[in-house]
């Protein structure tokens, strides 16, 4: 192992010294940032503002809802005058928007925009 490392170091050094053009491409901006992992899905969870905005836009685009009454704390059935089937329909629309599959038991509990935002924000797969 030590031999391999030493050999690799030995091999790589001359390349960098002898051919600066090549070393520039290898250690350029694309490869030189260790903090940024390409094609990794670790750092793309949604911000709270984005979740709120998208949830509200889904609720506002629901045909029976008056868009001006929608706020982040609105209750679907008490405030917006929807029935339980509309509630399920909104949850399904949210599933489609955020590419989730919400289990039935949790979907039953989501009855306000506040709860929906909270659930989606804490969901690891929301995208």
């Amino acid at each position: 192992m030590a031999l391999k490392a030493a050999l690799l170091r030995h091999v790589r050094v001359p390349v960098q010294t002898l051919n600066p053009g090549l070393s520039l491409t290898l250690t350029g901006a694309k490869w030189g940032l260790p903090s940024l992992r390409w094609m990794s899905s670790h750092d793309d969870h949604l911000s709270k503002n984005e979740v709120t905005e998208r949830v509200l836009s889904v609720v506002k685009s629901f045909p029976k809802v008056d868009p001006s009454t929608v706020t982040p704390e609105v209750h679907f059935q008490k405030d917006l005058g929807l029935d339980s089937l509309d509630n399920v329909e909104i949850v399904m629309a949210l599933e489609e928007e955020f590419k989730l599959e919400i289990p039935d038991k949790e979907a039953d509990k989501i009855d306000s925009t506040n709860l929906a935002i909270e659930y989606i924000y804490n969901h690891p797969m929301a995208g």
Binding site: E95, E101, D104
Partner: peptide, 13 residues
């Protein structure tokens, strides 16, 4: 009924 509605919605795509 709600379970059916969810199944139907999920098969829409």
């Amino acid at each position: 009924v709600f379970d059916f509605f969810r199944a139907a919605c999920r098969s829409i795509p």
